[in-house]
Design a protein around this nucleic acid. Sequence first.
DNA 1: TAATATCGACTACGGCTGTAATCGTCAACC
DNA 2: GGTTGACGATTACAGCCGTAGTCGATATTA
Lengths: 121, 121
Amino acid sequence: MSERISEAEWQVMEVLWHASPLTAQEVAARLAETGWSLPTVKTLLSRLAAKGALATTEDGRRYLYEPAVARADVAAGESRRLVDRLFGGRPAPLVAHLAERGELSAADIAELEALIRELKQ
Amino acid sequence: MSERISEAEWQVMEVLWHASPLTAQEVAARLAETGWSLPTVKTLLSRLAAKGALATTEDGRRYLYEPAVARADVAAGESRRLVDRLFGGRPAPLVAHLAERGELSAADIAELEALIRELKQ
DNA sequence: TAATATCGACTACGGCTGTAATCGTCAACC
DNA sequence: GGTTGACGATTACAGCCGTAGTCGATATTA
């Protein structure tokens, strides 16, 4: 398990994390804004199924697709990789970075503060 | 500007962010633990120079390489991309994620707390 | 029952990435 | 001055990624 998921594949996963199971058609419909053709979406679905990120159920002559991995797990893995690579595994510099660049709103800061308070218990 | 830097390329950049300018030989020597051959390191250096991430100065018949982009800028870009993609642009969920998985040490939390206090001013 | 639409599977293909060998050239040494 | 070594440049090549076309089989419809 735990194969990497590419960026295009991630968008497909997002659709299915949001609602599943879906047919290839339905997934493609929800990805209309990407401009991808149906074959493209089908290729991505196949690749995801092949690497175990999606589970398929036969429904007559077609498949219903649904996630086989939790979004949280994949997100955690990606986060960890980034934090390791960019900040030596320490998350504070990441936050400091975002802050320095004005990428943090007051709401973000409040949210982080509440989270920290909770973590300290 | 702002071409993407791949993971192998990132390791080369790390060397030069740490000390520069260096020759290809010197860079390769500092990447001994990767097991990469000298040609491999040279390829990575060329690609980085071609995309403007490294600046070169001629030194006789060879080049001296040094970063043409700040580590902080690249790191910020990557962080931003990740946070956008995984957490809808909000950093708190990222931290929450790391926390939930026990990826945050007490020291990390203290560091974050200090940072938040500072940000609130 | 014959034509058509729809599926998934397979194939394609250019670009990027990781990894490296080879080539032409110039400098240094014998 | 010829040979050897060190450079960068060029070429290679398999695997992954984004994007998509084609094919064979089946279901639907006329």
